[in-house]
Design a protein around this nucleic acid. Structure first.
Lengths: 183, 183, 183, 183
DNA sequence: AATGAATGAGCGTTCATTCAT
DNA sequence: TATGAATGAACGCTCATTCAT
């Protein structure tokens, strides 16, 4: 499949070296065929991003969310789901950032907004008390923070450990008590 | 100056479009001259990163740190310093991520490690009680998180506002009390 | 045809000036096409050498060799064949020597070795008495000598005349009686 | 010294890579200085050729030539002199052939003509009977042949061995009796 | 006389994209 | 629908040469 081939080539090399010919060869089709499915190179990686997100959504939907589950347990489940699906995820997203196309980056922002919405929705259902001033702003900041952590993740930390810290960060940031810190 | 020209071109376009000829033209010199100062294109951006970091250090050193200053005030001062120096900082760092050169990315990691050290040192001087299990791991995660927030920062948030949230994130994550969250 | 265009450009100019763009233009194709057939510039000239050698072999194979033919007549036929095929042969080979690529020069040596084998085989069939100490060494030397003569040949000598001298050199060197010269 | 530096660089790399800057650096002077002594790059190598030839002449003049010396011994002495002076001679001349400049090649021809004259003069003094039709043509051919042998000489043959064969080739070609070969 | 920073044309090569088959 | 040869602009980089100091 072309999208997967593109992802592979991107992971092995970098965006500039991920030529359409190379992708086509890896996918076992001709360049011409690639251009029958995609209008240009950036679109291939837009589709790859879509795919990645779609699989993420599938993973997230499979998480059982009930009132029994603790906040920490829930956020960990979410993060592990994201991380587990594809171990090369961090490297892949890092490389995706090399795509120079403006339209691609719009899509990237939209995708992140969708993730933010999912997180907001999940949190809202739990009747938590948020100790941040502007919840939406904090949510965006949180997603950016988690993206930063995710993208820079290396193999020497287990997904679970990483998820634990991300979860801690999220919970403490949004719901923490800092009266002693911020008089 | 070549480095500044390179930064400008990178901001206006992207890494692939920031050709050495374009950089030279912008700097008002010839390509040949560019290669008299830098061995290859990636080195130009390594130098740009160095420059950026150096100016950051200068900013950080100008912050008065005493025991009077609250944690929040201090972290805000730090973050505002980083942010103020160059308003295009986020966009610039985002674009720098496109540099495909492996050596450049090593340098990027080293730079982040230096920042982490600065943060560790500053925190250590304050005799805080950290409520995270593995302080060094958390520090790395925090730096990655802040990088993520910084890189994705847009102009619709004031530096002060952003600094406030980063500071909150930092303080709550490292020193927060979450006993009520994680029974 | 690209190889022929390359040969033409090389003859008219020199190796350094035989740019791939110039070759492409002469061949009536785009540079891109040149690189679809050849991995790099040196390979074009490797192919040109192959071509040249192949045509030489064809010429040599067309020579009738029987016991009736005198040594001199035979060697002349061989040399004229080599010379006749392409009048620019000497200039071409002279220019080919400018190719800096190491791999090309290996191939050049191999080609000469093949020619040496052909000469050895032909001579062996004639039951001659060789008056040189080390036949294989002398053969190598002879091929180098003939190459030197061939490469420096100018248009003011007819192929036949040149062939006659080369033939004389070969026969006298390998089979000459020098008892009077070397007491 | 610039000329020697040029020769060294040429031997280590090839003509195209023997940039004037590289030569200057090797010579321990600035590029500007190189251009104060030589009008252009080709002239450096013309001077190198002159130097080489001059040293050759010095070597040749040191050979005692009397009627006692046999032909073979004499020609060997000449050839060993040429070969001994600089072991890298063959490689050097091979590389010199890469110089694209037309003027340089004229000078190369002149140099060879001078060598031919020396050989003619030496042979004339010995009252030999030459069994070639056109002595001057044969002389030119012989010089080309010896050049070919010399240029292709590798380190696995001793100078003496090589000289012996060159000498044999010369003597047999010019003075050999081939009545039995060419009825 | 000597320097070496500056020049910019031009090199080999790659690439996204097209289109006749 | 699929192919893959062809395109040519553009890239990173090197070079011989110049000239202000």
């Amino acid at each position: 499949m072309i999208i997967e081939a593109a992802a592979q080539v991107l992971l092995e090399r970098d965006y500039a070296a991920s030529s359409t010919n190379r992708i086509a060869e890896r996918a076992g089709v001709s360049v011409g065929s690639v251009y029958q499915y995609f209008d240009n190179k950036a679109e291939i990686y837009e589709a790859a991003l879509d795919d990645y997100f779609e699989q993420l959504v599938t993973q997230l939907n499979s998480i059982k969310i009930d009132t029994e589950t603790s906040n920490i347990a829930l956020s960990e489940a979410i993060i592990v789901a994201a991380y587990r699906y594809w171990p090369d995820g961090p490297a892949f997203l890092r490389k995706l950032r090399q795509v120079p196309d403006a339209h691609f980056h719009e899509k990237l922002q939209q995708t992140k907004a969708q993730i933010a919405n999912f997180v907001r929705y999940t949190l809202m259902q739990r009747n938590e008390v948020f100790t941040v001033q502007d919840f939406d702003l904090s949510l965006k900041i949180l997603i950016d923070a988690i993206e930063g952590i995710f993208i820079n993740a290396t193999a020497d930390i287990t997904p679970e450990r990483l998820a634990r810290e991300m979860s801690l960060l999220l919970n403490r940031y949004l719901m923490g008590n800092v009266s002693n810190l911020d008089p």
